[in-house]
Simulated assay, not measured.
Amino acid sequence: MDEGILEKRAIRLDERAASRDDAIRRCGGVLVEIGAVDPAYVGTMLAREQSISTYVGEGVAIPHGTLEGKSAVRRDALAVVRFPETVDWDGNPVTVCVAIAAQGDGHVDILAELAEILMDEDRAEALRGATDPDEVLQILKGT
């Protein structure tokens, strides 16, 4: 995974969320905090979730904005947000959200890499249980 797309400061491993939408707002907030997106992007992340679930299995969701939201993206970035107490995502327990901000089609490659990680039970479990940002970076880089 491209090292520049996930900064250590965009990894939050001990968050709490009362609901799916609260979790999405928290993820979007991290993207705003690191300067990757304008605040308007968070609304498009919520709109995307209304049209199609971003839950991908193995306790992981990948919230991202709609096509219209691309104009609010300043630069491609990821945020990894872990909810140790899980969040109910339309009946599925989610522990990790990988929020995506992409101006072009860069997110397609990111999704493919995430799919590989999730298909590897050990890496998926390690991601759900990670408590250190460096650990997350290692898992996502496949080292």
Results as ranks from 00 to 15, higher is better:
Gly4Trp: 05
Leu6Gln: 06
Glu7Thr: 14
Ala10Arg: 02
Ala10Pro: 06
Arg16Phe: 11
Ala18Leu: 12
Asp21Cys: 12
Ala23Phe: 00
Ala23Gly: 06
Arg25Phe: 01
Arg25Val: 03
Arg26Ala: 13
Arg26Val: 12
Cys27Ile: 00
Gly28Met: 03
Gly29Lys: 00
Val30Ile: 14
Val30Glu: 02
Val30Phe: 02
Leu31Tyr: 06
Val32Arg: 02
Ile34Tyr: 03
Gly35Lys: 01
Gly35Cys: 06
Val37Trp: 01
Pro39Gly: 05
Ala40Asn: 07
Ala40Pro: 02
Thr44Phe: 11
Thr44Val: 11
Thr44Pro: 00
Thr44Met: 09
Thr44Asn: 11
Arg48Ala: 13
Tyr55Met: 06
Gly59Met: 05
Val60Ala: 10
Ile62Pro: 02
Leu67Ser: 14
Leu67Cys: 05
Gly69Asn: 03
Ala72Arg: 04
Ala72Phe: 05
Val73Asn: 01
Arg74Gln: 10
Arg74Cys: 05
Arg75Leu: 08
Ala79Phe: 02
Ala79Gly: 09
Val81Pro: 03
Arg82Leu: 01
Pro84Ser: 12
Glu85Phe: 04
Glu85Gly: 10
Val87Glu: 07
Trp89Tyr: 08
Asp90Thr: 07
Asp90Glu: 13
Val94Ser: 12
Val94Ile: 10
Val94Met: 11
Val96Tyr: 03
Val96Gln: 11
Cys97Leu: 10
Cys97Gly: 11
Val98Ser: 11
Ala99Trp: 00
Ala99Lys: 07
Ala101Val: 03
Ala102Thr: 04
Gln103His: 08
Asp105Pro: 05
Asp105Lys: 12
Asp105His: 10
Gly106Phe: 01
Val108Leu: 15
Ile110Thr: 13
Leu111Val: 07
Leu111Thr: 06
Ala112Lys: 15
Ala112Asn: 10
Glu113Ala: 07
Leu114His: 09
Ala115Asn: 09
Leu118Tyr: 02
Leu118Val: 07
Glu121Lys: 14
Ala126His: 04
Leu127Ala: 12
Gly129Arg: 15
Ala130Phe: 04
Thr131Gly: 11
Asp132Glu: 14
Asp132Thr: 09
Val136Asn: 07
Leu137Asn: 08
Gln138Gly: 13
Ile139Arg: 06
Lys141Gly: 13
Gly142Asn: 08
Thr143Arg: 15
